[in-house]
Design a protein around this nucleic acid. Structure first.
Lengths: 232, 232
DNA sequence: GCAACAAGTTAATGAGCGTTAACGCGTTTC
DNA sequence: GAAACGCGTTAACGCTCATTAACTTGTTGC
């Protein structure tokens, strides 16, 4: 995580302001003149740096997805194959929260303007997103083996919804400060996952009960809860 | 909850299709001709039913907010003042999930296109949303008195994010069926609230410890954990 | 010193789109 | 039975806006 100290290039300025404006008023709601004005140049001057308005959005969305995925992979790699899945999940959650709190506009764009992309770019972003989700899913299932894959995937999506709710959390001032907010979100995410696993466990217990009763009647052996298969 | 059996009026057809299209491609991303085509009439024919494109969006968003709020108030009223707050919270969660699962496009619009409204309409929608949130906050705080108001509000917003994640849950088929999905979301929401309360409780315990140690030094009595004050 | 280039500028172009105008036509209503 | 009206239609208007053209200017390379 190299902290940059050099001045941001013009491209970066533009991307940052474009992200903010897109998040505020939507991709179609903001004109190129506005983006230009936000960085001190006017309208068509942007075309010296980007092929068009679409290209800016594409670069933003691809960048976000890549950043999330590589960040997640880094944490997985740091944890190694023998690490505590609970610790690893905490690490993933923390990373996602940092991102959600520090780059609210990008989080907003991430699930709001995906459809405005050209087919190729949209496919790429979707693929990156999918890999990021699957990364979480495998960690969650390692920690909560009772969760089947579809349930785990739904749970991960839902927790993303929870963590990505930061833009709705009012402007800084009403909420309890960044550190407390991060801690709150973190515990809620963990609690949500645990509850998801409990739900499945209880359902499976219930089915197990039923199955056992039937077994009693038929006198046939039944295998226990199958361990999750690692990957397809 | 009177179930309608009569045919939908043209206005309702238009609103429904407009909601779907707006959710799919954004307010600015869909033209009036498309909306018209979706209901079998063409372009400007819509102006016999609505003052303009903005009016459709406004009616949709105000309608959603009103529906959520009145639904929530109904459940609170049914529960009465002496009911179990846990049961009431379950009822609120269930109602919200039903809405999120049955009207995904509207849920999407709800937090995506609010800024496209005229000032008056936007203010109205915000006010309705705020009342809905506060309704949840008071119930959550009754169930979890350890949660202070700002934390409870953040928690409610976050759980909304969780429950409103249904549009991201892929098309029906990959996920585990409506009933199971609803049950999963429900338990995750409860788990998230519980975890939020635990977080606060533990923080307060921690502070309490510190306070008690200081007390030991100074020999002064300290009152126990204060019960949550009901309202401001 | 001067071509080459990077990075702007303003003016023009052209498509898309919301809205309005003008008109048609079946169904009420008195 | 005809005036009024509900509900459409197509054509035209006008505005916004992304993109391109043509031109300027400071800086770099040799």
């Amino acid at each position: 995580m190299a902290t940059r100290t050099d001045a941001p290039t013009r491209r970066e300025q533009i991307l940052k302001e474009a992200a903010r404006l897109f998040a505020e008023r939507g991709f179609h709601g903001v004109g190129v003149d506005e983006i230009g004005a936000a960085v001190g140049i006017s309208g068509p001057g942007l075309y010296r740096h980007f092929a068009g308005k679409d290209a800016m959005l594409a670069e933003l969305l691809v960048g976000i997805s890549e950043q999330l995925l590589t960040g997640g992979r880094l944490r997985v790699a740091e944890a190694g194959t023998d690490g505590d899945p609970g610790v690893l999940l905490d690490s993933l959650i923390e990373g996602h929260i940092d991102f959600a709190l520090d780059d609210r506009p990008l989080i907003t764009l991430h699930d709001r303007e995906l459809d405005r992309l050209r087919d190729a770019d949209r496919k790429l972003v979707r693929q990156l997103q999918r890999q990021y989700v699957e990364l979480w899913v495998s960690v969650v299932r390692e920690l909560h083996p009772a969760l089947a894959e579809p349930g785990a995937r739904s749970a991960v999506h839902s927790v993303f919804g929870l963590l990505n709710s930061t833009p709705h959390l009012g402007r800084p001032g009403s909420l309890p400060g960044r550190t407390d907010t991060a801690a709150l979100l973190h515990r809620m995410a963990r609690g949500a996952f645990a509850a998801a696993a409990d739900a499945v466990a209880q359902e499976e217990v219930a089915r197990e009960e039923v199955a056992r009763e039937e077994v009693m009647k038929e006198g046939v052996a039944v295998e226990g809860v199958a361990a999750g298969t690692p990957e397809a």
